[in-house]
Design a protein around this nucleic acid. Structure first.
Lengths: 137, 137
DNA sequence: TGTTTTGCTTGCATAATGCAAGTAAAAAAA
DNA sequence: TTTTTTTACTTGCATTATGCAAGCAAAACA
């Protein structure tokens, strides 16, 4: 796509930043599975390659979606944590979960939890936000 | 990724079906811009290639997200229209719009319309659904 | 029975991804 | 202080996906 084109649509703007499978799976790991460390992302069952992981973490950080700093509890590791810009992605991921749970015939997502999400949407989003109370930016 | 892995997560299930930029832009064109015809998709400002468009339409049809039939008003053309499975994607696209409009510094999305979407979410979703009252499946 | 329109397919160059192996910096251990 | 280990990458290369231009075939129309 040429520069200057397709720049007016908020959907396109969003998709340029996180509209690929691996970015969204990393964000799922951070927001829903509370993963923080490089090797935790590598351990996900979808088996992201280490070069792709490094690339996506760099991009997400440069877009201000995640922040990176040394882990004070284990100085050899880094902690990747969500910014507010990232927490605002929770509703998107939530809706993707709901759709997938509805249409995946082999879903392992418990139906009652899905119902809870749909009925108490705001509360569910707030619960995830509160897990990351002290957030950068 | 190997077969049999990563099959338990509803997010992953969803992303395998529509988790790429072009699929989501086609769905935007159908659901928000009321596009129906092959050449209308080609005219979008993001300028999808004709081979990619053909590939994605075929995939979306095979997943039961869209249906294809001859246009009775212009028998040379086909109409691509959303199924119920597609209409259930509206909340996802809506949240992507909201995020993009919030964080795109050059957004053309009017702030008051965005506020309306956030305040009257259910109604907004219902309005889009009602545009496609007679839907296949 | 041509001609147009429409919806593709094909070929090829370029870019992204996947996999395995290697490396470098910092911390921990000796 | 030197060595070892841990961690987070980088590199090289094969495979796959994308982008672009051109071509083609079926249906409808004239």
């Amino acid at each position: 796509m040429k520069d200057g084109e397709g720049k007016n649509c908020p959907i396109f703007f969003s998709l340029e930043i996180f509209g690929d499978k691996w970015s969204l799976l990393i964000l799922r790991d951070i927001l829903h599975f509370d993963k923080k460390h490089y090797n935790e992302f590598l351990e996900s069952e979808e088996a992201i390659s280490t070069n792709i992981l490094a690339d996506r973490l760099k991009k997400l950080e440069s877009e201000g979606i995640i922040s990176k700093k040394r882990d004070p509890d284990n100085k050899k590791q880094f902690i990747y944590s969500p910014t507010n810009k990232c927490l605002d992605l929770v509703p998107i991921i939530l809706e993707i979960v709901v759709w997938g749970a509805k249409y995946d015939p082999d879903t392992k997502a418990p139906a009652e939890e899905m119902a809870k999400i749909r009925e108490n949407r705001k509360e569910y989003i707030q619960n995830i936000r509160s897990k990351f109370k002290y957030v950068d930016q």
